[in-house]
């Protein structure tokens, strides 16, 4: 019974909060103040969004506890990779201690500029290598779909660099001129763009439907 009441309460709070934030989005566009109503809805919307930020900050603390518990358990049960878990926990605690003086402190800045940023940059650079291996695998023709994929990729890749401009010649029987960069531009601007817009339109409809289901109380991920 208590669980049921809790679910109903959570649903009501979620629907009312969602409706206020949605109304705020629309009311902002309307001209006039409607006897202070517009300002009131604006302020309430802002307040609810700021509460979401506070909740996220608390969630970060719980995330911290989750990392600690998962890796401490790995070390305790001597699972494979327990050594890495040890390094992770030491780094976590070390960063936390340094962070007590604030992220703007000299040590905090050192951590970010000399360790974290270069590591992230190095890791992102790995993407180039991964892209090459993924492209190699994709170019292997297994079926008709991968044949289209490889063919289109080949045309676009060849049409992109300056050498592509030399790939042009007169068409023998039908007449006219074939220019690879023009074909590449056509592929990118017509079928690729049309496909992209189709995906985006579908995503927009899917996003609205997902949001409306939550607003209507048909979907309750917070109370399931």
């Amino acid at each position: 019974m208590i669980i049921r009441i809790g679910r109903i309460f959570a649903t009501v709070v979620a629907i009312v909060s969602g409706l206020f934030v949605l109304t705020d989005m629309f009311v902002t566009q309307w001209p006039g103040n409607f006897f202070g109503l517009k300002m009131a809805v604006n302020n309430l919307g802002l307040l609810l969004v700021s509460w979401a930020a506070i909740v996220t900050a608390f969630a970060l603390l719980l995330g911290f506890a989750n990392v600690m518990s998962v890796h401490a358990n790995r070390i305790r049960t001597r699972q494979p990779g327990a050594m890495y878990s040890g390094v992770l926990l030491l780094s976590l605690i070390g960063t936390l201690v340094v962070g007590f003086r604030g992220p703007a402190s000299a040590n905090g800045q050192f951590l970010f500029n000399a360790i974290l940023q270069p590591l992230e940059a190095t890791f992102s650079a790995l993407l180039v290598l991964f892209m090459a291996t993924a492209a190699y695998r994709a170019m292997r023709i297994r079926d008709l779909e991968s044949l289209y994929f490889a063919l289109i990729a080949f045309i676009v890749l060849l049409g992109q660099p300056p050498i592509g401009t030399y790939l042009q010649f007169e068409l023998p029987i039908i007449g006219g001129r074939f220019e690879l960069p023009i074909l590449k531009d056509f592929i990118l601007e017509v079928p690729a763009l049309a496909g992209m817009r189709g995906i985006l339109l579908g995503v927009a409809l899917g996003t609205i439907a997902t949001g409306l289901r939550v607003l209507m109380g048909l979907d309750r991920p917070y109370a399931d």
Binding site: A134, R137, I199, G202, V203, G206, T210
Partner: peptide, 19 residues
């Protein structure tokens, strides 16, 4: 999506994930 298509066995394209 191109990265998913390149690496996954099956891709859920765009709005399909909402289904």
């Amino acid at each position: 999506l191109p990265f998913i298509y390149l690496s996954a066995d099956q891709t859920l394209m765009g709005e399909e994930i909402y289904a």
